[in-house]
Amino acid sequence: MEYRLNLPVGAEEIEKIKAGDVLYITGTMVTARDEAHKMAIEKYDAGEELPLDFSKVAVYHCGPIVRKVDDKWEVVAAGPTTSSRMEIFEYDFIKRFGTRIIVGKGGMGKRTAEACREFKAVYTAFTGGAAVLAADAIKRIKDVFWLEELGMPEALWVMEVENFGPLTVTIDSHGRNLTEEVKEEARKVAERIF
């Protein structure tokens, strides 16, 4: 199935989505890599206020190339980074903030799949390396937070996106994890070959 979603989305909409479905999202998406995940969780736990509501946006594992043209930020290239690095943070992140859509590449593990099932979220894969395709769907940069503290690749870049995709759902809210299933099957095949 293919879905065109306008953000924010509720739990009900997320529950309709199955592993293998393709999404195109329109609305607000924010980049967050290792450091931003860590900082958001720490600030939340310390009772500090966060610069945005992560439940209303899609979270994108991405360290973009951005440049300032006439005082406005512009995206040059913004492909996804390897999501497995965020595996140690994602359960705690989803639990605290109620994020419904995570975007990255390469798939994620057991803990993230658990969070997706418990708190009704999906993990989706954007095509690795497809930086120009991604940049074309990013209409503008609305804001940036933690730029001074974390630097360009790790900052929270708040983007307005239009039909951002194709995003293949690899973890749904029903406990399926497509990339893990593929790998498990591949191991069995490899064992038989030589």
């Binding site: 390469g106 894969a125 293949t168 299933e181 593929v182 790998k183 099957e185 591949a186 095949v189």
Partner: peptide, 10 residues
């Protein structure tokens, strides 16, 4: 033949 496929999605 292992079926990993493009981007590991099969």
């Amino acid at each position: 033949s292992t079926g990993i496929g493009a981007m590991g999605l099969g």
